[in-house]
Nucleic acid binder design. Sequence first.
DNA 1: TTTTATACTTGCAAAATGCAAGTGCAAAGT
DNA 2: ACTTTGCACTTGCATTTTGCAAGTATAAAA
Lengths: 122, 122
Amino acid sequence: MTTFRSGCPITSSLDIVGDKWTLVILRSMAMGATSFAELIALPEKIATNILASRLGRMEETGLIVCDQAGQGRRRGVYRLTRKGADLLPVVQALARWGETHLPDRWTVPEKFRDMTSEQLIG
Amino acid sequence: MTTFRSGCPITSSLDIVGDKWTLVILRSMAMGATSFAELIALPEKIATNILASRLGRMEETGLIVCDQAGQGRRRGVYRLTRKGADLLPVVQALARWGETHLPDRWTVPEKFRDMTSEQLIG
DNA sequence: TTTTATACTTGCAAAATGCAAGTGCAAAGT
DNA sequence: ACTTTGCACTTGCATTTTGCAAGTATAAAA
């Protein structure tokens, strides 16, 4: 269970997504990733135990759902919920800041820049 | 020195501001805090060693500057740079998400919601 | 039926964070 | 002048989070 540092909505949001990996995973899912394997293959090289733990917490906090989840392994695809997709403006703002203020970064795809939360959950 | 996990501007931004405290400090400075003491008094209760270390790193990465810094203690006031102030959209997006999706959170001041980066550095 | 791929778990090392206490300096009080 | 108070830290150590390497369970493919 998440314990909030204060009632501030900014701090509380950070208590949920303000770790090293959650928003990176979210970015990748916004760009189309749906499986554990795809997320392991990212250039950022997240460790398997961290990914499993982050996906678990993101499911708990309602940012993602896992279709045909249930018994054993091979758990099917992860999808963003409305709650998760609504974090897109945060990620887009980070992209914009990085492109403006950090040297030699990649350019994000145009479609990502113009995307809306609605498009992600369709 | 910051080591980036990849060339992605989103991930790289998170390599700079994606820890537990940096954006909370930034929020407080956007709302007017300028001194160590004011930041220690926040409801979030950041520890003194963490605050000192975060302020140091924020200065290194160019998010803030410290006026009349120099010898000994009593280092004067911290101010946001343009680079730091430009993170305001990220914080505003977090505020919006928190107010929408988390229960029983405070409401951020209207002036904060409508604020621009330019107003912060004046 | 052996191999391969996916989706994890486990054990332990390293790094980040947190708590409590102490330190150095300057201004204020007496 | 001398003590006290407040500010801005530092230090030492405990706890939590993250990271690496290896192993495990299941199912589909060969």
